[in-house]
Simulated assay, not measured.
Amino acid sequence: MSKVFSAHAVSVDGYITGRDPGAGHGLGDGATLFDWYTDGDTSSRVFDMFKLSESSARVFDALAGRVGAVVAGRNTYEDSERFGGGSPHPTARLFVLSHRPAPEMTERQTLVTGIEEAIAAARKAAGDKDVGLMGGGVLTAALQAGLVDEVILHQVPILLGGGRPFFRSLPEHVHLRLVEAVPAPGVTHLHYEVQR
């Protein structure tokens, strides 16, 4: 069965956006969370526009190569300008988790209202590949439902002091086991396995 994982750039103080994210503002003033996507000299094999450090490219491409479908929250969808009618991944189908109707969904985008439904549909679409999660609310809901296998943090050495926090309230502790830590210029890649 495919795995479900979350991989996010996050500040040391736990934010995945800067202040004032939203339509027209993108991910807010925290754009420095993503500088490592373009600060290197190694081209990504999956995302044409990314030039990462050699160590970041190895980690990033290994993760991106696993993705067959993506589940994103409504805030992430709107903040990212609806991914231009496509998906945050060049080949993966997008499932948007929301209880509100979403305008102008395309054939690469599907609106779903519950996390279990979203993960089940994404797994079916992913085939033998994995499901990637985008957004703190989606990750929290999937953790609460016991559906997450791995959490990857691309931790950027900055304290943003505000923005959208990555982790939301959970009803209980979630224990993680560190699988790999890869230091790279401008980011440390922390790969955790969810302990059940």
Rank of each mutant, 00 (worst) to 15 (best):
K3Y: 09
S6V: 14
S6Q: 15
G14C: 06
R19I: 01
D20F: 13
A23Q: 14
A23H: 15
G30T: 01
A31D: 07
A31P: 02
T32D: 04
Y37R: 12
G40N: 04
G40W: 04
D41R: 15
D48I: 02
M49A: 13
L52W: 01
S53N: 10
V59F: 09
A64W: 06
V67R: 12
S80H: 14
G84V: 13
S87P: 08
H89K: 02
T91H: 05
A92H: 10
R93P: 08
H99Y: 00
R100A: 08
P103H: 09
T106A: 03
T113C: 04
T113P: 05
I119K: 13
A120M: 13
D130M: 06
D130K: 08
V131C: 03
V131M: 00
L133C: 04
T140P: 10
T140V: 05
Q144N: 14
Q144A: 10
A145S: 06
G146K: 07
G146S: 09
G146Y: 13
L153F: 14
H154G: 08
P157E: 04
L159Q: 07
L160F: 12
G162Q: 06
P165Q: 06
R168M: 12
V174N: 05
L178F: 06
V179W: 00
E180Q: 15
A181C: 11
A181I: 09
A184I: 00
A184L: 00
P185R: 07
P185K: 06
V187Y: 04
Y192N: 05
R196G: 05
R196A: 05
